[in-house]
């Protein structure tokens, strides 16, 4: 079993895991602010880190991915373009990751569902992980017990009155995230149960399980709040256990299922730089119709990728099928049929 693991992936996974463990140890003041009750969450996060980095490393070794990865960084890091590229990257981050405009172009309702779920999760992760790792904790202000002090890496980063709207929002931020995710999830679930196209290709493991996981995390989390605020802590310990279980299962699932697209999708940012370079440089011209159809950079890179994949559509006279535009390839099928038949007409 272990011998089947990819060496590079294992090496990178172990390195990332160790880095996280060291960061938790140092960031929590040598575990001084680390809450032992949260050890199960931490263990699941450490496992997820290994799994995600392992899978990412294996993914990057795939010939087309490796090519884009290499080219993307080459183009981005060119000293002459670096400042402009950084600005462009910032723009892309806002549009593609922040506002997720590409999804609204497909379907506004789908965008709303994804926007609510993704930002609910991002915000929840940004709050929860530092708390679990002991990087952030709250202390009562020794000068005035009605104030809380937010401690970040052991340093006071701000204080606020416990009974104020700032305090209320701070302590309920995960509830807001849960509500946003549940709304988004409901929209997504409705689509999955009514859209004929989605219904024909969806699977339980890839499409429903992630939604069910998010739902269980959110509902059990909200039930903790309900128990604490309105039920005098009734069943709080059991609910806490249920919540921990749902979160841990979701964390362990991260590297395997649909959630992995969270880490794959940002590769789109590198592709934008590749496309920009393609637009500004020489175009490939089809050897049949003499029309430009793609960037020369892209066509030549694809020839290398195809060779690495043992797919070599290269003819004896040196013509490569990549030098023919897609429209001509479609026509060639009919033209070859016509030649075989012996002219116009049909069998």
């Amino acid at each position: 079993m272990l011998s089947q693991l990819d060496k590079k992936g294992t090496r990178n996974g172990v390195a990332a895991t160790l880095l996280l463990v060291v960061a938790i140890y140092l960031g929590s003041g040598k575990l001084k602010h680390f809450d032992p009750a949260l050890i199960a969450y931490t263990s699941a996060t450490v496992f997820a880190t290994f799994g995600i980095v392992y899978r990412y490393s294996v993914w990057l070794q795939k010939p087309p991915t490796a090519m884009y990865w290499r080219r993307g960084w080459q183009l981005f890091m060119r000293p002459s373009r670096l400042p402009a590229n950084c600005l462009h990257l910032l723009r892309l981050l806002v549009q593609n990751i922040g506002l997720q405009k590409f999804i609204s172009n497909r379907d506004p309702l789908r965008w709303l569902a994804h926007f609510l779920m993704s930002w609910g999760c991002i915000l929840a992760v940004a709050v929860t992980f530092p708390l679990v790792f002991g990087w952030v904790h709250f202390e009562a202000d020794p000068q005035n017990q009605e104030y809380y002090v937010a401690m970040v890496f052991g340093t006071a980063a701000g204080r606020f009155p416990a009974y104020s709207w700032v305090g209320w929002v701070t302590f309920h931020i995960l509830d807001f995230c849960a509500v946003a995710i549940i709304i988004g999830m409901a929209i997504a679930m409705k689509r999955r149960m009514s859209d004929r196209g989605a219904m024909s290709v969806q699977t339980f493991g890839m499409d429903f399980l992630p939604l069910i996981m998010l739902f269980s995390v959110c509902v059990t989390g909200l039930m903790l709040t309900v128990s604490a605020l309105w039920l005098q802590g009734h069943s709080y310990s059991f609910l806490a256990l249920l919540h921990a279980f749902s979160v841990i299962v979701t964390l362990i699932y991260l590297p395997f299922g649909k959630f992995f697209h969270i880490f794959q999708r940002p590769a789109n940012l590198g592709v934008q730089f590749y496309k920009q370079e393609g637009r500004e440089t020489e175009q490939a011209v089809c050897v049949r119709c003499q029309q430009p159809y793609a960037s020369k950079l892209h066509v030549e890179d694809l020839k290398v990728v195809l060779k690495e994949l043992d797919m070599e559509p290269e003819f004896e006279d040196g013509t490569h099928y990549q030098d023919i535009c897609p429209a001509c390839r479609r026509k060639l099928m009919a033209i070859n049929q016509r030649e075989a038949i012996g002219g116009h007409g049909y069998l």
Binding site: P64, N105, R265, N268, V271, A294, L302, P313, Q322, R330
Partner: peptide
């Protein structure tokens, strides 16, 4: 797959039958 497609157009150029289409608005 919508969550995964990064709109690179490798498939558009590599398909020997010229089948995949690229939708620039959806980047997909």
């Amino acid at each position: 797959l919508k969550p995964r497609c990064i709109g690179c157009q490798n498939c558009v150029l590599a398909c020997p039958f010229g089948v995949p289409k690229y939708l620039s608005d959806a980047d997909q």
